[in-house]
Amino acid sequence: MTVQEPVPTDQAHREQPTSPSHGSGWQASLHMQLECSMTGHGAKTVMTGLHHYGPLRVQRPFYPEGDTAHIYLLHPPGGVVGGDGLDIDITARRQAHGLFTTPGATKFYLSAGDTARVRQALTVEAGGTLEWFPQENIFFPGAKVHMDTTIDLSGNARFMGWEISCLGRPVNSEIFEQGNIDARFRISRDGKPVMIERLKVDQPRHLNATSGLRNFPMQALFVATGCNEALLEQARELIEGKAGDMPCGLTLIDDILVMRVLGTRCEKIQALMIPVWQKLRQTLLNKPAGIPRIWNT
């Protein structure tokens, strides 16, 4: 553990950089490993080698379904502004199984100039399993954000996760008319790139491009490894007729089921993705359907 800085409590506070030695904003990092540990009650996944710096925390894992560690990531409570840097590095070792989520959306505020940088490096060793289900990223109008999420898998490592992006604040009719978002999501296996996805918006025309966002403020990606044509078919049946006016497509890239949705409301997007996740969770991970308790609060 390193020195703790004061935690900002609101956006106004965030206008005052308090960490001059690290550029213009908060610099926060969180590094950890998940390992399978034998206890008196059998095997369970525990956090080891936890290091955090700055306002990026993690709660103690809890175990609502036996061995799997459910872990809440706590982003900076005042949101993220230009110049902030968040660096998350998580490794799930052999036989470990962790499920990560966040208690709420991560907010990226209007930038005065600098770009906020978020790096999320997730590594899953052979035999390990990682589920990555943070709540949505909300990019306020004028936010400048560079996000890089990399998932490095070895051998038969398993991964399921999503990334949900909200441009502007549709509930308040605030459109992302200015700002700059570049969010990459890459999966590689044994060092070779398998799939790379990107959301890039830095011109107002990118919002209404007919082959791009089509004026939908939200874009979501769900991925799950270990899938095949039969599971793709079952997933398609699950969402059949439920997308309404939301463009929604599923495909299979090698063994990765990929689902993409455009929409206007987070709950509706999640209502399409969660049943697919739960079905695959049951089939591939032999874990019960259910959603993280914190989403209900």
Partner: peptide
């Protein structure tokens, strides 16, 4: 970065 094209192709 062409999400609607990717969905159309799916």
């Amino acid at each position: 970065s062409s999400p609607a094209m990717a969905i159309a192709s799916s």
